[in-house]
Amino acid sequence: MFEDYVSDIKTKRATERDLEIIGEAVNRIFKKDKNFKLENAQKIIGTRNRIIHGYDMISDDLIWSIVINHLPKLKKEVEFLLNK
């Protein structure tokens, strides 16, 4: 699957864009509520900033790792918060 990701520029850009949107959403939440509990919130915001401001520093390995290792955990955390 990683090879498919790396070879498909549209998927790569769409994935990066979605991570930007997630990071911006977390950033906006924290501007309104500094006490909002979300694990890795600063890393999420930092990833957004890195993608937006440092395209030459974004590796396929990094994005793939986020998608595979971190997004499933974030999804569960958000679902839990929504169902509270």
Rank of each mutant, 00 (worst) to 15 (best):
T15D: 03
I63Q: 09
A14R: 08
K73S: 12
Y55S: 07
G23Q: 04
A25F: 03
S7W: 00
K34Y: 06
I45L: 01
S65Q: 06
L81I: 10
E79W: 04
Y5F: 14
G46D: 03
L71Q: 01
K10P: 13
K76M: 05
V78E: 06
T11V: 13
I52K: 13
G54E: 08
K75T: 11
F30T: 00
I51P: 09
H53V: 07
A41Y: 05
R17H: 15
T47H: 06
N83S: 14
G23E: 03
E16Q: 02
V26W: 06
K73W: 15
V26F: 07
E79G: 09
I22D: 00
E77F: 00
F36S: 14
G46R: 03
K75Y: 09
F80P: 10
D33W: 03
L38Y: 12
M57D: 15
I51G: 15
I22G: 10
I44K: 04
F30D: 00
K32T: 11
F2D: 05
L82E: 15
I68S: 11
G54F: 12
K75R: 15
L81V: 09
L62K: 10
G54L: 04
G46P: 01
I66T: 04
S59M: 02
D4R: 05
M57E: 12
F36M: 07
K12M: 01
G54T: 01
V6S: 06
N49A: 07
K31P: 02
I44H: 02
K76R: 03
T47M: 07
D18L: 13
M57K: 07
I45V: 04
E79K: 12
Q42C: 01
N49T: 01
K10Y: 11
H70D: 14
I9Y: 04
E3L: 04
N69V: 14
I29K: 08
Y5I: 12
L62V: 08
K12N: 08
I45N: 06
K31H: 13
E79M: 15
M57Q: 07
F80E: 11
